[in-house]
Amino acid sequence: MAARALLLRLRCARLLPRLRCARLPAIALGLFTAPGCVHVYQPLSSLHRPVVVDPQAANFQDLRLSVVCPPGGLVSRGEAEVLCERVSKLFENQGATVTTSGSDRIGEDLAEDPEQETGDPVAAPTTDLVLELRSRETHFTNDPLSWVLCVGTATLVPAYTESTFAQDVIIRDGTGFLLASDSLQGRIIRTFGFGTWAGNKVLDLVWRKKEDELSTAQVYAEVSADLYGQLSQLVFNAKMRWQILEEATPNGRATSPVPAERAP
């Protein structure tokens, strides 16, 4: 955890103004004020809903789950792979057999209906559920005035930068039938300034309860708990819906007069 905190501090330092004619002093200033970066996370909607399912329990025994993490929006290809890997670990821990994909390929396969096109019998789906994760930024604020004030007051007045993100979750069954979808939204605020950093540290030490402390480690823990909890709950709900539809149609394929929404 300490290593992660250090990494984040150095990244914060990199974002300092790059003074062309005084690079060395700038680097020195950056390292000196690196601790002045405070990250705060606030769940906006859906991310902090109550979660009933226990992500440590075996909730998905005998379930075949495909996790699809298309790159784009907020994540690069490499980051999408990391995302997929961690989410697959989450569900493997709960008993599911997980395959991952970094592209839309699984969704595209599902969109084709071989029976309609060739008249051949429907092949058994290779997976029970498909979990698709897409990330996007819905709002970004970087107030130049706050940076002017920040620099003008020797970082006593903090500079604010804010990003609002949405983690779109779509869950389909093996045939492409839409079972659940949601958009988990939150925002991360980065406050830069010695005043805010020191003020928060003092408040953490003397005033705030442990669960209210604002530290980088807390941001990791909170985002992690929210995302894992909501993903587990959404997939569990989808699994229950899928089982109900399986019961409704004895041949194992969900049918409905309502056209199934397909992957783009």
């Binding site: 993100f165 941001v219 823990a221």
Partner: peptide, 26 residues
């Protein structure tokens, strides 16, 4: 710059995902 900032904000999320899933169970 905007791209850089976006990644900067996404990083805590990725770090969160690098944490063990065990963390989710509070």
């Amino acid at each position: 710059r905007r791209t850089s900032c976006r990644l900067q904000f996404w990083l805590p999320l990725l770090f969160a995902l690098w944490a063990s899933p065990v963390r989710a169970a509070s």
